[in-house]
Computed example of a mutant assay.
Amino acid sequence: MALDNEAIISQLKEASILELNDLVKAIEEEFGVSAAAPVAAAAAGAGDAAAEKDSYTVELTEAGQEKVKVIKAVREITGLGLKDAKGLVDAAPSAIKEDITEDEANKIKAQLEEVGATITLK
């Protein structure tokens, strides 16, 4: 039985990440193998479905126990005044910074988590 490689590749390119994940699980179960390393390569080669995100939003989900420290950190990150920074923290979930790089988003996330905040990157 000959496989139609082009048709299979075309279908993989059009599949969502969730569909690819389900496919990998089904193959692993059917053949008793593990595709741990190839999964990342397959997802990366899946075309537009695995395209990297180029802008991020840092969202404060919860201020946590150290609200004053979170407000100070938000002021430092955003350059807002005390009243505006407090308003952002009180309004959680709220966007702290939008349309930034992944590195900058991760840096801000770490800075806010260090003072007890819960952060989501979008």
Rank of each mutant, 00 (worst) to 15 (best):
F31N: 00
D103N: 08
V74W: 02
T118K: 15
V89A: 11
D84W: 07
K107R: 14
A15D: 06
Q65H: 14
I8F: 01
L20S: 03
K13G: 08
A15Q: 01
L23V: 08
E59D: 13
K53A: 09
T101E: 09
S55H: 12
A73G: 09
V89H: 07
I119G: 06
A37T: 10
T78H: 01
S16Q: 04
Y56H: 06
I77P: 01
E28L: 04
A63Q: 03
L18Q: 12
V115L: 08
A43G: 02
A26W: 01
E59L: 15
A73P: 05
E98W: 13
E66R: 13
A110D: 11
A35R: 05
E102A: 12
T101I: 02
G79K: 07
E14A: 07
L60Q: 10
E59F: 04
E104S: 06
D54A: 05
A92N: 03
E29V: 03
P93T: 11
V58T: 04
P38A: 03
N5F: 15
N106S: 06
L88A: 04
A15K: 00
Q11V: 08
G81V: 06
A46V: 08
A73D: 03
K72D: 12
I108D: 02
I17P: 05
V58D: 07
V24G: 02
Q11G: 08
A46C: 11
E66A: 14
E104L: 06
A43F: 11
K69Q: 12
S94P: 03
D54V: 13
A73S: 06
E62A: 10
A2I: 01
V24Q: 02
A42W: 02
L112D: 06
I17H: 08
I17S: 07
N21W: 00
K107F: 09
T118W: 10
K97E: 14
A50H: 04
T57R: 13
L88T: 04
D54F: 14
A36P: 03
S94K: 13
K72V: 15
E66D: 12
V115G: 07
E66Y: 15
A2H: 00
A73K: 06
G45P: 11
V68Y: 13
I100F: 05
A49P: 08
K122R: 15
D99P: 10
K109I: 03
N5E: 07
K67C: 11
A40S: 13
I119A: 09
